[in-house]
Design a binder for these strands. Structure first.
Lengths: 234, 234
DNA sequence: TAGTTTTATTATGTACGACATAATAATTAA
DNA sequence: TTAATTATTATGTCGTACATAATAAAACTA
């Protein structure tokens, strides 16, 4: 007799897994809003029929996902999850493998070229003034690496800010340590100096008087070095 | 007497917080590689002088960050963290607020325009063939929304794949449910049909015979509807 | 002796009970 | 009526105990 077709795959998930699912389900079904509180641990123990240990671990997971926040006495309350804050902890350059690091660095390039349209849609004269201030304070050329990095962050960070996309900005600040690390590590081949090079100053000019298309090309050129280094290290 | 300057800010972090930090520190200092195992819970209890409950919760956090993986008997072992798998659980459209949803949708547009350079660097004749196959199977025009979504995912997903950036691809698949949700929700103003419209077929053509610049413009045009809808809903 | 089965060991998973702690609610005092 | 005190409550931490699964050790069979 053939038994192979008679059984469904056994549920191999742990007790906590199941409770976790139940709880997420509960949150969605009840359409709970931010600030609403959920039942206490003891109540959940009773209604779910499991020990407090299990409930606590499941709640802990929700907390780490940023779905809830536990306060003493008050119990747990729903929070609007800041998706990337969860991520920032594992965004440790020393822990990620090199392939991932390069991937992430590359994503930065993709983002900064791709956001041209949005930049032009949302940039204000005040933004341009601020960019000019940042650029004016930049040294023409400095050997002080940390100093350069600081200006890099100031300028490019401002660009992300202009997009008005808070999630994108958070994403970028989360990636900052990675960028810095990749710059300093041997992951990129040594600097390849190209002839024509669009500076930050040049980018601001394009932002003021140019078009998204011009900006994309300018930004592409500006980042050309990074590109070459990424591609040539393959 | 003024006490305000005499005290450093009190460490308000919980016991688990401190243990968690200690453990992450341990992982980095020891330069542990993937597959290496860390001390058992009991050993950590002893060396850290805290209860197993606390150690377990700290370890759980590391696990949710994707830093370790616990196996029975063998204890916990270091793993190469898949950063985005951590995120995918909290990437629940029903839980995220509308601003964040719009932000994420916008990031998609940024990514797909910004990856032109990389696409041209890495695309192979085989990729183009596959894209053509996907396009050929598309209906010219269909009212079946789900069917359209499927083709959208197939085509654009393939683009991400061509970049060869595994992290980017993971990021995209994580965002898929969001895209779908935003499409279906009332978050976007109703479709604005533009005159000139670059189809998937057109994009493939540009990929085959064009340049990154041409592709960016084509993709921008292709996504124009989405752009207009996002911008007009402000 | 080699290979297989059985048993023992070990570390995590789950459960329960107890007390500490902090935030709130209820009560009392001024 | 307001301020101070006390009581209550739900989470935070601790310890113990046993279940379970994976491995290592031992016993056994061919």
């Amino acid at each position: 007799m053939d038994f192979t077709t008679q059984f469904n795959p056994v549920d191999t998930s742990s007790l906590v897994d199941r409770v976790e699912d139940k709880l997420v389900q509960l949150l969605q079904e009840k359409k709970l809003k931010v600030g609403d509180s959920i039942p206490t641990e003891l109540e959940l123990c009773n209604s779910l029929g499991v020990s407090r240990t299990v409930v606590r671990e499941a709640l802990l997971r929700l907390r780490l996902m940023g779905l809830i926040e536990s306060k003493k006495k008050k119990g747990a309350v729903i929070t609007s999850p800041d998706i990337f804050s969860v991520l920032s902890k594992s965004m440790n350059p020393h822990i990620l493998d090199q392939d991932t690091l390069r991937d992430i660095f590359e994503i930065r390039l993709v983002l900064e070229i791709g956001m041209a349209d949005i930049l032009f849609q949302r940039i204000t004269p005040k933004d341009i003034e601020e960019l000019k201030t940042i650029v004016d304070n930049e040294p023409d050329f400095s050997q002080d690496h940390l100093f350069n990095i600081e200006h890099e962050i100031a300028f490019h960070g401002k660009l992300y800010e202009i997009t008005g996309n808070a999630t994108l900005k958070k994403f970028q600040s989360m990636l900052l340590p990675i960028f810095d690390y990749v710059h300093n590590s041997g992951l990129l081949k040594k600097q390849i100096q190209l002839h024509k090079y669009v500076s930050h100053k040049g980018l601001v000019e394009v932002l003021e008087n140019g078009s998204p298309e011009l900006f994309r090309n300018a930004m592409r050129n500006h980042l050309e070095n990074h590109f070459s280094r990424l591609f040539s290290s393959e």
